[in-house]
Design a protein around this nucleic acid. Structure first.
Lengths: 346, 346
DNA sequence: CGCCAGTTCTGAAGCGCTTAACTGTCGCGC
DNA sequence: GCGCGACAGTTAAGCGCTTCAGAACTGGCG
């Protein structure tokens, strides 16, 4: 039992960075003044200001955000929960960064991963004192979201909120789907199937919208919803299912782009021409669909708009305490490319 | 609705989250003891421990990481710089989370995005007091990395370090490429081209390894490096370039999976069968390549191993001050699937 | 009985920063 | 002269946590 076994008291701070006190000493002023100058607050003379800035620069001073948030009692940080595998999430995050920055907020990312479920990932965010949460992934069946919404301003993206405590920002799924169905009907299609996105965000709405759109065109009899998910495998499975049947629909509305790509692979693998025999429409307009040799007709979601609204909602609620839960609907727009064509005339 | 009213020290204007003092008051002990119990340190009686835990739970107490890092002078946080668009980064991050957790470290993600370059993204990480950095993306030509390495333990992933101040963890590119070339040669290929990955991580090594492997098989005359990048567009461009020429190579080593997929699209679009006329090998073994209808022969990188080593290197350097820069090489392994076959006999 | 060692717990001092609240100085109008 | 507001600074009090030096209590042993 000797105390020679010291656990590296200095580990992790071998590179002690300069503190505000160091800067103050070097500039010959008080810490407070340094604080003021560094935050561009009035109350310091031009010459002193200059001197402080110079000292800070020379010392390579960098404010300690932990201390800042502790001192001011708030972090000005928004946590984003995402899935690393969804390209559309990447799109959203890319738009969230500038949106948050413009409002003076910082962004922290937390991803779900195997062994790191939604709960763990949001806990991490909360532990880092995020003041608001933007959930790009959220299990509608979990009650976590509701608890969260009670504790911190929360915005769920991509689906309608299932609780009154959180805001919601999502695409006008109905509009996008309607445009897609209209487009296909105009081309002459009648047998239009839909691959469902399962629990994925927006799927329920897309399914409903698909049914409604079909009925509007008096195609209720042709309605066909194939269970699926928002990934390539689901598209492949759906494609194989269709190939195994007597006759194919002439068009398919996939759950999203990844699903559409899987579907097209399966169909082409089965000797079915796209769009010759079957037209395919995706959803997301992710970078995959742009690719010249995929060239997918798809529904574009307004990633920028969604991101901006999500951030704005979160911030407003943060700064204005008791707002009612809001639902923001962003535009959707069909982008016609090369995977849709008139059905083959028999 | 079960809000138990207990003598709260902060009563009056709270609505804030519970602090350690609240827990202490509720359990009738000192703040210090709560701190001990919550961190599972010895020094508290079993009964008290129980009581504290219960109180904490009832108050929904969550430690404030900002305050923690401030108090203990360190953050135990590793910052990861990533690109949201690279599936392989997703893979790595998924493995980094558990690796870091096991060593008692937290992970903060920062992504590059338009308007948010490497520098901005790492600044954010540093501002959040990350003690070490794992760079999944790093511009070898930028001198930032070197500066970083001087300031905080830094590990670059996927490429060799260009400065002596940082550790590096990367795949045995040569081994993977050699296996791929061996495989193709065994199948009977001689005209094996390589699409270069440009500035992407590992590309330079892969290029060199490709040349070496070809020479080993006395195929120096067949060496052909097509400029490219690590994405689908580059694959498409390369495919179109090849199609425009008089005769095709019989096999192509793509820069990575995404590139391979673009290439295959272009080739098939041009009426060239894969693997019938041209065999294609990818790199990364990303989830894309598993898809049954892509079924890409590819080189698997050991994401888990890379992640673990990156984290371990960072932590060791953190806890052991002055280690020399290290280079860790992880295994690579060819995964043979369906895009490679013997060349068509003329 | 006194003394030491162990165990369980407390008090106080910060970590690096922000935020009042306060002290001096000016220059100006009266 | 005097008061006054505007400016340039300062001091002091924390934010929520950890840590270090003890304070109370055991109890065992000479």
């Amino acid at each position: 039992m000797d105390e020679t076994l010291e656990p590296q008291p200095n580990a992790g701070r071998n590179h002690q960075r300069a503190t505000m006190a160091d800067v103050a000493a070097r500039a010959g002023v008080s810490r407070t003044l340094v604080s003021l100058v560094l935050r561009d607050r009035p109350g310091a003379g031009a010459a002193t200001r200059e001197r402080v800035l110079k000292a800070a620069d020379e010392l390579g001073y960098r404010p300690d955000s932990a201390a800042q948030m502790l001192a001011r009692g708030r972090s000005r940080t928004i946590g984003v929960l995402m899935n690393l595998e969804q390209p559309f999430h990447a799109e959203l995050v890319k738009a969230i960064y500038p949106a948050a920055e413009q409002l003076g907020y910082d962004v922290l990312l937390s991803a779900v991963a195997p062994g790191r479920d939604e709960h763990a990932a949001t806990e991490a965010l909360l532990g880092h004192r995020c003041e608001a949460l933007v959930l790009l992934v959220s299990d509608p069946e979990s009650h976590d979201t509701e608890k969260l919404g009670g504790a911190v301003p929360t915005v769920v993206v991509g689906r309608k909120a299932t609780t009154a405590k959180v805001d919601s920002v999502h695409t006008a799924e109905a509009k996008g789907i309607r445009q897609a169905v209209d487009h296909l009907v105009e081309l002459g299609h009648r047998r239009i199937a839909h691959i469902d996105g399962g629990k994925g965000p927006g799927s329920a709405d897309r399914r409903t919208a698909y049914r409604a759109a079909m009925r509007r065109h008096r195609l209720a009899d042709e309605i066909r919803v194939i269970p699926g998910a928002q990934d390539e495998d689901a598209g492949i499975a759906a494609g194989e299912l269709l190939l195994s049947e007597d006759s194919l629909p002439t068009a398919v509305l996939a759950a999203n782009d990844r699903c559409a790509i899987g579907l097209m692979h399966a169909l082409r693998g089965g000797g079915v021409a796209v769009p010759g025999e079957v037209s395919v429409v995706g959803y997301d307009d992710s970078h995959l669909s742009h690719l010249s040799h995929i060239n997918l007709t798809t529904v574009r979601q307004d990633a920028t708009g969604i991101a901006e609204n999500a951030v704005r909602n979160a911030v407003e609620r943060l700064e204005n305490g008791a707002l009612p839960a809001r639902e923001t609907v962003c535009d959707a727009k069909l982008v016609i490319r090369a995977t849709t064509a008139p059905p083959r005339t028999r």
